[in-house]
Amino acid sequence: MTTAAPPLIRQRAETSAARASQVWKVYGTGEAQVVALRGVDVELERGRFTAIMGPSGSGKSTLMHCLAGLDSVSRGQVFVGDTEVTGLNDAGLTRLRREKIGFIFQQFNLLPTLTAQENILLPLAIAGRKPDQQWFQTVIDTVGLGDRLGHRPNQLSGGQQQRVACARALVSRPEVVFADEPTGNLDSRSGAEVLGFLRRSVTEYGQTIVMVTHDAVAASYADRVIFLADGQIVAELTGPTPERVLDTLKSLDRTAQPGTEL
């Protein structure tokens, strides 16, 4: 990997950052069997911001977990970049997470013992890599945390903590950043800040981001929205607006689950 080159030029022959092919995920056996994913095929393009939406229990989180190698699939294949995730052992998955994946969680998940800066640099420290000072500075400036780097998580607001978590995910310049409801715990203003920042990192630095969300407004920041229901991809939008996302959701509710909810 040419870490010294600016991210925009980091283009390779293939354009997908992550790919799922005929992925099935089944929990339990017999009576208690639950099928979370039914043969999902999806390709997430490099340098794009993709949102995954769907009602509760649609399998959107499961899909993300499988794409990120956090969960195993029952059938099918998952690739991150040119690495096949399915079939990797724990050591391989650990290496994959170190080198190619960044995470942003709903609960921020910062280490309370470390300062903001230490939290941001933690993935690099774990991997034993030296931070690229210039890139680190860029990330810090983008998230606007310059004066808060010495603070511990409990001295930061929720929005600030999530910005630290974003910076942590981006600082190692992973192949893909997976964001699981990143604004779920934030008020709308802080949420907007975080989403704006994610958007910028895609547009300006060519970062690939996959985000699971409930929120139509959040989804509207993405380049592309994939809708899941009952473990299958049922719709897709490009260039979404909040209204179009809501309309799609409503139509899904009517067609896929007549008589339930709403």
Binding site: D90, A91, T94, R95, E99, G102, N109, L122, I126, R168
Partner: peptide, 9 residues
């Protein structure tokens, strides 16, 4: 979290 961001077993 630590495992998720790449800490090995």
């Amino acid at each position: 979290l630590l495992r998720a961001i790449g800490l090995s077993r």
